[in-house]
Amino acid sequence: MTYDRSHVVLSVRDLSVNYLARRGRVRAVSNVSFDLHAGETLALIGESGCGKSTLNLALIRQLPNTAVTEGAGILYTYRDGRQVDVLKFSDRAMRRFLWSECAMVFQGALNSLNPVLRVSDMVYDTASAHGIGRDEARRRVLKLFEQVRLDAARVFKSYPHELSGGMRQRVLLALSLLLRPQVVIMDEPTTAVDILTQRSILDVLKELRAELNFSVIFISHDLAVAAEIADTVATMYAGEIVEIGPVNDVFYKSRHAYTLSLLNAAPRLSVGREELMSIPGSPPDLIEPPPGCKFHERCAFATDVCRTVPPPLVEYEGGRLAACHETERVLENALETRKAALA
């Protein structure tokens, strides 16, 4: 997949999200920075609770009131080149921005549609909130439904419960593209559906992306799916991006111990099941995170320095970034694993 590396659509700078809990401040996302280019697909991977979903909700400012979002900015570039900081939007401006510029496909297609409204009502709702007439909305969505291979006329009049899980997921996908946004955030869009449906959704997604050329932030803990669809992969651990880079580099030449652990934990058809390793331990407490590298307690490569000094994000060849003290040993191990797999 290729994309225009010169055109940054979304630039996230130093974004942190804190929840105020009774016990103290939960640092759900800390100091995250990344750029999303036009047409790029960025996969965010990591265990449950690593902050992927929080980060995404923070991007569209849909976090509950108990969350405090801070940061240098979420800079968004319109198609006409105008640049704005999403964090500085008024509520009204934010509402206009949402969906028309940045849409989202949530996980759990079952519950993402209002059970008491017809699909058509939700289409009209969305369109009218952004000043698009009913006829235009209907025309657009019927075309999108066809593109995602739905029986457009029937689905349009249906209630959500009359549709299967896969159909609903495709409705959501089509709905997210209704207003032709530049960015679509997809939060585990394929987890709730069976493998065949997953396949067809991914195919549809790829086709649409090629045709409409939007950028995608793709959240998944399914590394195979991420590998298939992403241009860039970012590994998140304990609220931080610990490694980011082109998909092949990150997957085959991992520079962070956590990325490597994730890859080893993932089932691969090419590898025998007996070699599957799970990551020992559990993610750290985000209120009082461990000193040094937050991963050290679970890390096979950890040394004394890992236990005391937080590793900085260091740039490597090919525009890669990783935050690991033992990056060389990790890389070596990654290459060996790959060699063994190929053998």
Binding site: L57, I60, Q62, M94, R95, R96, F97, L98, W99, S100, A103, M104, F106, G108, N111, S112, L113, N114, P115, V116, L117, D121, D125, T126, A129, H130, L172, L175
Partner: peptide
């Protein structure tokens, strides 16, 4: 419920969300 979050993310007006959602 998820559909409320989705409705908000779709940029629907508060009134519409309050009544129909």
């Amino acid at each position: 419920e998820d559909y409320i979050t989705v409705a908000k993310a779709r940029g629907l007006s508060q009134r519409r969300i309050l009544t129909d959602y």
